[in-house]
Amino acid sequence: MQTPTTTLRPPLHRVSRTAIWYWTVRACLGWLVLIGGQVAWMVAGGGDQRTLRISALGVTAVLAAAHVIVMPRWRYHVHRWETTPEAVYTLSGWFKQEWRIAPVSRIQTVDSERGPLEQLFKLANVTVTTASAAGPIKIGGLDRATADRVVHELTASAQATAGDAT
């Protein structure tokens, strides 16, 4: 085990492919708010510093386009999850990636949630919380059937273990 070449394999399952579109739309909405603000600033400001405002808007648009195109695909490439009777294991993020592992015996709650946007894409996420505020594990972008199954499995295996989970 002490060999320096030991590595952590990624979790087994990818999230649903629809998640790419979900992330795209979510990112678009965020950028639209910013771009809308900038447009308002440009209209309200009148004539002065016109070039500055237009160039700022241009920069934002380019950044937004790059983010909206790259981020969802990169994310899909990274995001993975796996549950076993002993542990929950996820990998998420894109630019900054995060592996989270928690033993099932320390699980406190298993929640499944569908936001309005997620409902649009028939997706759901599963959040597993532990006694640590730093330790919730979120599996996003699952299709509903998988999410329900994961909740069911985790609840069942958490029931089977003992320990006060703190």
Binding site: F95, K96, Q97, W99, S132, G135, T166
Partner: peptide
């Protein structure tokens, strides 16, 4: 309770990681 391993883009390039032990 569990472990979080975070690696930013630059940390991945440097072969580093930040290991966080979560606790109550």
């Amino acid at each position: 309770i569990g472990w979080n391993v975070t690696r930013s883009f630059f940390q991945r390039r440097a072969g580093l990681a930040t290991l966080t032990a979560t606790t109550a």
